[in-house]
Design a protein around this nucleic acid. Structure first.
Lengths: 217, 217
DNA sequence: ACCTGAACACCGTTCAAGT
DNA sequence: ACCTGAACACCGTTCAAGT
C-alpha cells in the first residue's frame, strides 16, 4: 500500500509531465517537470525507472482515451462518419500535444503499456474500418492498421505549420479520406502491414534502446 | 582562401555527419561524428557554429538534390507520373535517412540555407503540380505546398515500420495519390497554406531556438 | 588560420543519507 | 517506505594554448 504523500507526488508528477510534454515537446528536462510538481529531481526516478518510462505512461494513457472514444463509435448509425470522427479525434490528440508528434515514431511500441494501448487501438480501428468497408463507404483493401498510420500521417503533414495555421490538419485528413473512397481506388503496390509486422518492429525498437543502455556502462 | 587541411576537414566532417545522421538519427553525438571524420571535437565548431547548423547544411543539400530532380521532371511527357516520381524521390530521401524524418518538423525552416532550399522545393513542386492539374490528372484544389506536405506525411506514415516492411511507404504514397485524383474530390474544409504561412512559421521556429539559446546564459 | 584538448554548463540517472 | 540533494557520466559548446 503506497504512502499518502507518495501517491500525491505520483499524481503531481504525471500531471506536471503531461502539461510540460504537451507544451514543450519530448525534450523538456526532468528538472523542469520535478519543479512543476514540487518535488526533488531524484523523486522522479523513485516513481518511474526512466524518463522514457514516464512519457510512455502518459503516451499510453492518451492512446487509451482514444480507444475508449473509438469504442463508443462502434455502434454509430453512419459507419463512414464514425470512422472520420475517430480519425479526427486521433489527430486532435497530436495537434494538442507536441510530444506526441515527436514520440510517434521513436518511443512507440517499445514499452509494454504503450504496446497494450496500441493493440487496443488497432482493434477498435479495425472494427470501425470493417464496418465502413462493409457499408461500402471506403475501399475494400484498407485495414485498421492503415487507418492508424494514416491519421498519424495527416497530423504530421500539418505539424510544421501547426502553430501558424491551426486547423490545417483537417485539410489533409479530408484529402487522405478522399483517397479511401471506392471511387478513386487504384491497385496498391504493397500489402497492408500485419499485426506481426508491428510486433517485430516493437522488438527491434526494444533492442535498439537496450543497446543504448549498455553503451552507458 | 581556406587552408588545405581545413578544406579537407570540412569535407570529412560533412561526409561523416551525413552518414552518421542517416544511420542513427538526429541525436548522434558530435564526438562520434568528429571521431569518424578523424578530427578533434572542437574542430567541428571551428567549421560550423552549432550542431544544428551542421545538420541544417546537410539537410539543405539533400533538399537541393530533390529540387534538381524535380526540375528535370518539368518537361516529362506524362505530368501525372512526373508528379508521382517527384513524390517518390521525396519519400525515398526520408526512407534512407533517419535524421530527415526527425528533422522534418523541428529544424525545418529556421536556418537560411534550409529556407532557400525549401523555397526552391516549393517552386518546383508548384510547377509539377500545376502541369498535372492542367492535364486533369489531379484535382483542381491541390497546390505544390500540399504535395510537399503530403509526401512528408506518407514518409512519416510508414516510418514506424520502416525497418520491418521496407517498401511500405509506397502503399501510403499511392493511397494518398488516389486522394489527389479528380474522381474522388470532395470539398476540402480548409484552404491550402500560403507561402506567407510558411514564412511566419519559419520566424516562429527561429524565435523559439533563440529563446533556448538565451536560457543557456 | 586552423587544430587541439581541457574546461564549462547542462542533462538523465544513481545513491547514501535522512525522515 | 519514500524524499532529498550531492555525485556521476554524458553531451554540446567555448576557449586558451599550440602549430
Amino acid at each position: 500500500m503506497p504512502r499518502a504523500d507518495a501517491a500525491r507526488n505520483r499524481r503531481s508528477l504525471l500531471d506536471a509531465a503531461s502539461a510540460e510534454l504537451a507544451a514543450h515537446g519530448l525534450d523538456v528536462s526532468i528538472a523542469r517537470i520535478a519543479a512543476r510538481a514540487g518535488v526533488a529531481k531524484g523523486t522522479v526516478f523513485n516513481h518511474f525507472p526512466s524518463k522514457e518510462d514516464l512519457v510512455a505512461e502518459i503516451f499510453g494513457d492518451r492512446v487509451a482515451g482514444l480507444v475508449a472514444l473509438g469504442e463508443g463509435l462502434r455502434d454509430a448509425v453512419d459507419p463512414g462518419s464514425a470512422l472520420l470522427q475517430f480519425m479526427t479525434a486521433g489527430i486532435e490528440l497530436h495537434a494538442n500535444d507536441r510530444s506526441l508528434c515527436e514520440a510517434a515514431a521513436s518511443i512507440s511500441r517499445a514499452d509494454p503499456r504503450v504496446r497494450e494501448a496500441s493493440e487496443g487501438l488497432a482493434q477498435v480501428a479495425e472494427d470501425l474500418t470493417g464496418r465502413a468497408r462493409r457499408a461500402g463507404v471506403i475501399r475494400a483493401d484498407v485495414t485498421g492498421h492503415d487507418i492508424v498510420l494514416l491519421f498519424n500521417a495527416a497530423a504530421q503533414a500539418a505539424a510544421p505549420l501547426g502553430d501558424t495555421v491551426p486547423g490545417l490538419w483537417r485539410r489533409y485528413l479530408h484529402l487522405i479520406f478522399d483517397g479511401l473512397r471506392p471511387e478513386a481506388a487504384h491497385q496498391l503496390p504493397v500489402a497492408a502491414p500485419t499485426t506481426e509486422d508491428f510486433n517485430t518492429a516493437a522488438q527491434n525498437a526494444r533492442a535498439n534502446t537496450l543497446d543504448q543502455r549498455n553503451r552507458h556502462r
